[in-house]
Design a protein around this nucleic acid. Structure first.
Lengths: 338, 338
DNA sequence: CTGAAAGCGCTTACAG
DNA sequence: CTGAAAGCGCTTACAG
């Protein structure tokens, strides 16, 4: 159709407004003192000409792309999509954009994403990597200037990266204490994938809370889910079938697992919460959609995403006010464990 | 740690190799005649200095970013992830990268993605938009130079965009004819979301095939799923409960729906394929994981993704060899409808 | 409060 | 087969 019309540049705006490029650039960036009239005239010219600043030229001049990478192991889980929303919101507020990179939990893809983001000259990365082993994650983080790691618990990032960690053990304690307070004594943990750092942390919290109260977990009941989703939880609890009558509390790795547990119990004719109380973790929407509704630990997912990019932005700005931020969970009591 | 070390540029490489930037650029781009010695010397310098070409500077000079957007309504479905892989493979082969943009089926987000890709100056977009209405999709496509639409059936893109469409009606015909040939007479279509163009197309194919053979669908049996996933299929077939004994063939919108149908039948004590034969569509992995395994239509998902970016690349290169490519499906006969 | 000019790191006619 | 130089569209000291 129309031949490749020449792009309208800052020079066009400048000449239309009767000023120099410098001035135009200043109003575009809100920098320096400008007379209100000049500013208005420039803005008008921008409007009139339909000018849109070239991100690329700007990047070359400033050595910033205003692009941030967000690496997640899955995008079909509400946990990560909520984090992503939080990250996007915080990024937009600061004129940054988020590149969402899904690794499907694949280690090679994760490394690939770092390379990709480096190639594209992203200004920073927030990486949610619950499983990549430390010795593979560390070099990537070292190589890249600005990164914030979400839930890389137990890894000493030192100055290398910012960190956001949920206080998993503490959260589990909340859940366990609640169950104990309501008279439950025979609890077991329905864990996530054994290689997930968060799952280990949660298990530790579970055990500690139990022992602090003078009880101990029954190793024979211990079970894990992989993947940690609805079906995983369902299968895990089905496997507990023959001992389920001895148990009166299931502390689940997350809400999906808990929902699966719920389904298994229903099938096995076990009443929740009468026979067994069940707690989840994270408080995703599903928690209130299942029957009975889940007692769970609320993880501020949106906030985690937002905080992560704020930390990242600080680092990019050279500030590093925070090295590590600990996120606390809150117990939400609903029907599955009143 | 190390202070911000100055980037190694093409000039560094040039001086190290004892040539000009022009020459370095030439070997980097494999352009023009170079003496083998010079080339080798440059390559060596590149290696020695660890030079990495700046994508941004290159983009500014060439007005190309080598970035392609792939807009999909969902990323948790194997159908789209396979398309994405195909697209990525084809893109990589040509030194392009894919930016995966998930809209969650949200129309506003979809428009937002176009804007984002424009802002970022992506060279082209392939958009899988099964639901966005034509009058919202069209302006976006018009505005953007290079786009290829996947499964925008029934929309006349003219020169505006390339198109890849599956021959849905034809595929359905294959399925229906197979069921008829195996003696089934009382078939019904378990549809996808009513606003999904593909679902309508498939329904048309279903009806036509039936009528061509002298039969007609029973409108009372017609049902749709939203969303078109496992649970959707399950619910849809449960609703057919009271008429299910009159039906001997379920032609499902896709494999997920078919798997849901399978589950519902199992629960209702209906034997597949003895009482009812079931066909799916797309041939995702799940098709062979369920029991009985699904007879289905194989859609070449990876190929669709790859073809889409190839078409896009042609358009970017100014060629436009193809305006529309029709993809044909193949019937895969398995247990659910032998 | 506003400009002139150099620079970011590439590519690409144009010469030779 | 190789170079010198201009240009891509911005930003940013440095002056005034």
């Amino acid at each position: 159709m129309s031949r490749p019309t020449r792009r309208v540049t800052i020079a066009d705006v400048a000449s239309y407004a009767g000023v120099t490029k410098t001035t135009v650039s200043r109003v575009l960036n809100n920098k320096g003192e400008l007379s209100p009239e000049t500013r208005a005239r420039v803005l008008q010219a921008v409007e009139h000409l339909g000018y849109r600043r070239s991100r690329i030229a700007r990047s070359l001049a400033t050595d910033q792309t205003f692009l941030l990478g967000l690496i997640v192991p899955s995008i079909s889980s509400e946990f990560f999509t909520e984090i992503a929303r939080g990250a996007e919101d915080a990024a937009w507020e600061n004129e940054y954009k988020i590149l969402l990179c899904n690794t499907e939990g694949d280690w090679d893809r994760e490394e690939g994403m770092f390379l990709f983001l480096e190639d594209i000259q992203a200004d920073g990365i927030v990486v949610c990597s619950p499983r990549l082993p430390e010795d593979r994650l560390m070099p990537l983080v070292e190589q890249f200037q600005n990164v914030v790691v979400v839930n890389g618990q137990g890894i000493a990032w030192r100055e290398l990266a910012g960190a956001i960690e949920t206080a998993d053990a503490e959260g589990m304690q909340l859940a366990v204490n609640h169950l104990l307070a309501s008279g439950r004594r025979n609890l077991t943990y329905v864990g996530g994938p054994p290689d997930a750092r968060v799952s280990t942390e949660r298990y530790l919290g579970f055990v500690n809370a139990l022992e602090a109260a003078g009880y101990a977990p029954n190793p024979a009941w211990h079970t894990t889910c992989h993947p940690a989703d609805l079906n995983g939880g369902y299968q895990a609890v089905r496997q507990l079938k023959h001992v389920l009558h001895e148990i009166d509390g299931l502390v689940c790795f997350n809400d999906l697992v808990a929902a699966g547990a719920l389904r298994a119990c229903a099938e096995l004719g076990i009443r929740v919460p009468d026979d067994i109380a069940i707690t989840g973790c994270d408080d995703i929407q599903l928690a209130t959609l299942v029957h009975p509704q889940l007692t769970t630990l609320q993880t501020p997912k949106h906030e985690i995403g937002a905080l992560a990019v704020k930390m990242l932005l600080e680092r990019i700005g050279g500030q590093r006010k925070h090295e590590t931020i600990i996120i606390h969970q809150r117990l939400i009591i609903r029907e599955s464990a009143p």
